[in-house]
Amino acid sequence: MSIIAQRTVHEGGAALRLPPRVAALIFVREQGLLVLWLLLIVIFAITGAPHFFTLGTGVNVLNAAAITSIFAAGLGIGVMTGVLDLSVPGTAAVVGVSVALLIKAGAPVWLALVVGLVIGAVVGVVNGLIAIRGFDPLIVTIGMLSVLSGTALLLAGGYDITGMTSLAFLGTERYLEIPAPVYISVVLFVVLTVMLKFTRVGTRLLAVGGNAEGARRVGIRTEFYRVLGFVISAVCAAIGGIVNTAYISIAQPAASTGVIFTALTAVALAGVPFVGGRGSLPKVFLGTVVLATISAGLLISGVPTFWATIATGVLLIGALALNKGTGESISRLLLSNGGMAGKRRPS
Rank of each mutant, 00 (worst) to 15 (best):
G258Y: 10
A212T: 09
L228R: 02
V267T: 03
I248N: 10
A246H: 03
P253Q: 13
S249N: 14
F230P: 01
L228P: 00
V259Q: 05
R217T: 11
V201A: 14
I239Y: 01
S249Y: 07
G214M: 01
R221H: 14
G202N: 12
V231T: 12
G240F: 06
G241H: 03
G219R: 00
G202V: 09
V208K: 12
S256A: 12
A234F: 07
A263V: 05
A234H: 05
R204E: 15
G210Q: 06
Y225F: 14
I232L: 15
I260F: 06
T265K: 05
S256N: 13
I250G: 01
F261D: 02
V201I: 15
A251T: 06
V243I: 06
T203S: 12
G214C: 00
R216C: 00
T262L: 14
R226P: 00
E213P: 00
R221A: 14
A215D: 10
A251G: 05
S256E: 12
L206E: 09
A246V: 11
G219F: 00
L228Q: 02
A263C: 01
S249G: 00
Y225H: 11
T265V: 08
C236F: 08
L205K: 09
A246P: 03
R216Q: 13
T245Q: 09
A266S: 09
V208F: 08
N244Y: 11
V235L: 01
V267W: 05
T245I: 10
F224C: 01
R226H: 04
L205V: 03
L228T: 09
Y225R: 09
A255M: 07
R217N: 14
G241F: 05
A207Q: 06
F224A: 13
I248Y: 08
V231Q: 08
I260Y: 01
G219H: 03
L264Y: 05
V243W: 03
G258R: 04
G240H: 06
G219S: 11
T257V: 13
I220E: 14
G241M: 02
P253D: 13
A237Q: 02
